[in-house]
Design a protein around this nucleic acid. Structure first.
Lengths: 248, 248
DNA sequence: GACGGTATGCTGGTCGGACCAGTAACCCAG
DNA sequence: CTGGGTTACTGGTCCGACCAGCATACCGTC
């Protein structure tokens, strides 16, 4: 005979569980309101501090949002990958990952994203991609900041065409972290004009491959572009980690 | 001239930010202790309620853990994918992540992991993989639970051979979430014996490919195995999402 | 001197009450 | 019908209190 370990469940945790369950089961839909803290306090028969700690947890998880002074109470939010984004971001920051590992991960994911985008894209996606590319063209004359914004839009359009929200979130996060690591070195890069032209040419090739539904080519182009542009910031001895992703 | 939107930052949020920053920057390492709530309250010059709400948020994010009565104060935790797992789990429950998308993501990641493992593996990794496979062999006669444990060990060994911690974490998380979604249907599956034999054969092939440093083959085998074993749980109309990852 | 139990001072968890700035809805004057 | 002020209640923050639980230092026993 075996005994179960006794788990002391905090009061606020039980409040979290109940509200969470109500949200997931659909009893509480997005946009609806929770009772006020003082009302919840009587319903759960706990103090306001306990209620507030529970609400903080739910808020951190992205399930609710509360605005001071609003007589309608805390709002139930629609499910969004924001919380996923945040925990992913925390993990990448806390893990002290090397740039090589981040790039390796990004090359793997970006390759898959481009492959899927090429195979699954619709006409709407193609139109969106073309619009993003045109915006990048226009952005070249408006300075690097504007160009960079358009570049992000292009990447997001690819991720959307791939159609996988997990892929989108992970790519977005790791992209941000990579940029964080090299941005100071990047701003020192001399010829921003040449940089913009390089990216523009690459995105043009990628778009053509996606239009042709040539997933393998799009994936290879994407991985190669990441390597060509970022490998210089990776210590030489670690670059070998990236090579297996280039040969395929 | 443009004005910035004024963001009212709550007191507890600033506490969270400061502690978070200390953890990420390495000032606070895993295993170390935070000052007690009453001490933090004087350091941050806020009330204990505010401190507690901040600690709740950090705890929900998996950065700290506090045990009642411990005079050493709240403990700083090592980075763990638990929070990532939870937010992904929540998203799947809220129906924003279908099994097809999870599998698609897992096929992409697992393929890359196998590719990297085949290209970067050392002799130690090979030995570890062989040991894991032997454990699976032994596990077949000890029931499905034991076999499953050995199976996980094999997957982890592959991820370790690939050498990318982000890949490891993401695979681990998405693997868990996939199993959650199908476990009730899985336990009803009749012939567990045949299932175990199938996996055993597949892992043998994969190991051979990795030994031969044939990354493309290992990746293809991994993606194919995932599809063969899990696609039946995906609604037919969504299976097309997985096909582009099989053709490469 | 080595050991086991106890006392102590702290911890986190919970409670209740209080005040403030802010919001949304309502109502009334125009 | 509109606009502006009133009002009731919201969430954010603070304070003080009590409890059970943990580590440690202390102390008496052997």
């Amino acid at each position: 005979m075996r005994f179960e370990p006794v788990a002391t469940v905090r009061a606020y945790e039980r409040v979290v569980q109940q509200i969470e369950e109500a949200v997931f089961s659909g009893t509480l839909k997005a946009g609806e309101r929770l009772p006020s803290e003082r009302e919840l306090m009587t319903q759960f028969a706990v103090s306001r501090s306990t209620i507030r700690e529970a609400l903080r947890v739910l808020q951190a998880a992205g399930l609710i949002r509360s605005k001071p002074g609003d007589p309608r109470g805390p709002e139930v939010l629609a499910a969004s990958p924001a919380a996923l984004h945040k925990s992913m971001h925390r993990l990448t920051r806390a893990d002290h990952l090397s740039l090589a590992e981040l790039l390796q991960f990004r090359m793997a994911l970006d390759g898959s994203a481009h492959l899927l985008a090429a195979k699954l894209r619709t006409e709407e996606h193609l139109a969106e991609l073309e619009a993003a590319l045109a915006a990048m063209h226009a952005g070249t004359s408006l300075g690097y900041a504007e160009f960079s914004r358009a570049d992000v839009a292009f990447h997001e359009a690819i991720a959307r065409a791939a159609g996988n929200p997990l892929l989108v979130v992970c790519l977005e996060v790791v992209r941000g972290v990579v940029l964080e690591q090299i941005e100071e070195r990047l701003s020192h890069a001399g010829d921003q004009d040449a940089l913009m032209r390089t990216w523009l040419a690459h995105h043009g090739e990628v778009l053509q491959a996606i239009r042709d539904a040539d997933g393998e080519l799009a994936a290879r182009l994407a991985r190669r572009a990441l390597y060509d542009n970022y490998a210089e910031y990776v210590p030489e001895c670690e670059r070998v980690l990236l090579h297996p992703l280039l040969d395929i």
